[in-house]
């Protein structure tokens, strides 16, 4: 792999151009890393690979070692692990609410206290998910509730 860079004040914006005879897994990783800088993640829907803006994500869930991302209208898979998504998306207002779930706080429609000091969230999509006891305090802290 040959890496070259041109720094010139004449350029109006940053453009990254990748030239390759074919799309390899290593190249996909490079693309994914670049998209991460713009808070976008690469997702797959069957055979199709697309880029998803973090703001569109309602919540993400890890099932059988696979990470699924849910938007208002679809469910797609990402190669990123849940903890990687958490690290990336935490500055964008995402919070881990259980061992296998991450939610965007702005996409919560309502929340109520539930059994055993858990919280029950109703998301903008109408789905309800439970914040486990272990993570309920972190969510309350984030919202500024004692």
């Amino acid at each position: 792999m040959k890496i070259s860079m041109q720094i010139d004040g004449a350029f109006q914006e940053t453009e990254i151009l990748i030239r390759s005879p074919k799309l390899t897994p290593e190249l996909e990783q490079v693309l994914a890393a670049l998209h991460l800088l713009e808070r976008k993640i690469t997702v797959t829907n069957g055979e199709e690979t697309t880029v998803l803006d973090a703001a569109e994500i309602v919540y993400a869930e890890s099932v059988d070692r696979r990470t699924f991302v849910y938007t208002a209208s679809s469910c797609v898979e990402t190669r990123l692990r849940l903890y990687e998504l958490e690290e990336l998306l935490e500055p964008c207002g995402f919070l881990r609410i259980s061992k296998s779930c991450l939610v965007q706080i702005r996409r919560i429609r309502s929340l109520k206290a539930d059994l055993d000091r858990r919280l029950r969230l109703t998301l903008e999509t109408g789905e309800q998910i439970i914040v486990s006891r272990q993570y309920a305090d972190a969510l309350k802290l984030k919202l500024g509730v004692k």
């Binding site: 309502s110 109520k112 309350k140 500024g144």
Partner: peptide
Amino acid sequence: RNKELADALAQYKSAHN
């Protein structure tokens, strides 16, 4: 308690939007 949570959520959303 639920009202406190709802108010906190509304405040968070208005601050971050």
